[in-house]
Amino acid sequence: GPMASDKRPRTAFTAEQLQRLKAEFQTNRYLTEQRRQSLAQELGLNESQIKIWFQNKRAK
């Protein structure tokens, strides 16, 4: 629909990254900035991508 703007492409996470994020989520529903930074480095992701993933996951 018209609401779907092309400005922010959805990140396609790899299965491996998703597995890691899910495991982290089961341990911590809320990430500290430090955890998020190390996860971002570990997974080669953007911190904001991880932050948003957690927000979306909590919203469900």
Rank of each mutant, 00 (worst) to 15 (best):
37 Q>P: 01
51 K>I: 14
12 A>K: 14
20 R>M: 05
6 D>M: 01
39 L>D: 00
51 K>P: 01
27 T>Y: 09
3 M>H: 15
51 K>W: 12
24 E>I: 04
56 N>T: 11
45 L>A: 04
12 A>C: 13
25 F>Q: 02
43 L>Y: 02
10 R>N: 14
50 I>A: 00
8 R>C: 15
33 E>L: 08
27 T>C: 14
11 T>Q: 08
54 F>A: 01
28 N>A: 05
21 L>W: 00
50 I>D: 00
33 E>F: 06
8 R>F: 15
12 A>M: 09
11 T>L: 12
10 R>F: 14
40 A>Q: 03
11 T>S: 07
5 S>L: 01
50 I>K: 01
7 K>W: 08
20 R>D: 01
48 S>W: 14
5 S>E: 15
50 I>H: 00
21 L>N: 00
35 R>L: 10
57 K>W: 09
49 Q>G: 03
30 Y>D: 08
28 N>D: 10
9 P>Q: 06
15 A>C: 13
49 Q>I: 14
7 K>M: 13
44 G>D: 07
48 S>L: 12
36 R>S: 12
34 Q>K: 11
59 A>T: 08
30 Y>W: 12
18 L>F: 06
50 I>S: 00
5 S>G: 13
27 T>R: 13
8 R>T: 15
5 S>I: 02
6 D>Y: 00
46 N>C: 07
27 T>W: 06
40 A>N: 01
60 K>A: 08
33 E>M: 11
26 Q>A: 13
46 N>A: 12
6 D>L: 01
20 R>E: 02
26 Q>L: 07
33 E>I: 11
29 R>V: 05
23 A>E: 12
29 R>L: 03
14 T>N: 06
24 E>R: 01
20 R>A: 07
42 E>S: 05
29 R>M: 07
44 G>I: 03
12 A>Q: 13
56 N>V: 14
50 I>M: 02
4 A>T: 05
15 A>I: 09
17 Q>P: 00
30 Y>R: 07
8 R>N: 15
7 K>C: 15
33 E>P: 13
17 Q>A: 05
13 F>A: 02
25 F>E: 01
43 L>N: 01
51 K>A: 14
52 I>V: 10
56 N>H: 08
2 P>A: 15
5 S>W: 00
37 Q>H: 13
13 F>W: 07
57 K>D: 03
49 Q>M: 11
25 F>C: 03
41 Q>E: 11
47 E>S: 06
30 Y>H: 11
53 W>L: 03
20 R>H: 05
41 Q>G: 06
30 Y>M: 10
27 T>S: 11
53 W>E: 01
3 M>D: 15
1 G>S: 03
19 Q>T: 10
51 K>D: 13
18 L>D: 05
4 A>K: 04
40 A>D: 00
29 R>P: 14
7 K>S: 14
5 S>K: 05
19 Q>L: 12
54 F>C: 02
13 F>D: 01
59 A>R: 15
33 E>A: 13
35 R>I: 05
32 T>N: 12
28 N>C: 10
22 K>W: 13
51 K>T: 14
34 Q>R: 06
31 L>H: 02
49 Q>E: 09
15 A>E: 11
48 S>H: 10
25 F>I: 04
34 Q>V: 11
52 I>W: 11
16 E>H: 12
58 R>C: 08
30 Y>E: 08
42 E>R: 02
23 A>F: 08
24 E>W: 02
14 T>Y: 02
40 A>I: 03
37 Q>L: 10
12 A>W: 13
58 R>H: 07
4 A>F: 15
13 F>V: 05
32 T>P: 07
54 F>G: 01
25 F>D: 01
55 Q>W: 09
15 A>D: 12
12 A>D: 08
43 L>M: 06
19 Q>H: 08
30 Y>N: 10
9 P>G: 06
48 S>R: 08
28 N>Y: 04
25 F>W: 07
27 T>Q: 12
18 L>N: 05
43 L>G: 00
52 I>Y: 10
60 K>F: 04
16 E>T: 07
28 N>M: 04
55 Q>S: 08
12 A>H: 09
59 A>Y: 08
40 A>T: 03
58 R>D: 06
51 K>M: 13
17 Q>R: 02
27 T>M: 11
4 A>Q: 15
49 Q>P: 02
3 M>K: 15
9 P>C: 14
39 L>F: 03
37 Q>G: 07
57 K>N: 09
28 N>I: 04
41 Q>I: 14
17 Q>F: 01
44 G>V: 04
34 Q>W: 06
5 S>P: 15
53 W>N: 01
40 A>S: 08
37 Q>W: 07
51 K>L: 11
16 E>A: 10
45 L>G: 01
52 I>T: 10
7 K>E: 15
44 G>R: 06
34 Q>F: 08
42 E>C: 04
1 G>Q: 04
2 P>Y: 02
15 A>K: 10
47 E>H: 04
49 Q>V: 14
38 S>W: 08
16 E>Y: 10
2 P>M: 05
37 Q>K: 13
8 R>I: 15
52 I>A: 11
10 R>H: 13
7 K>N: 15
23 A>G: 05
58 R>E: 08
36 R>V: 14
19 Q>I: 11
46 N>H: 11
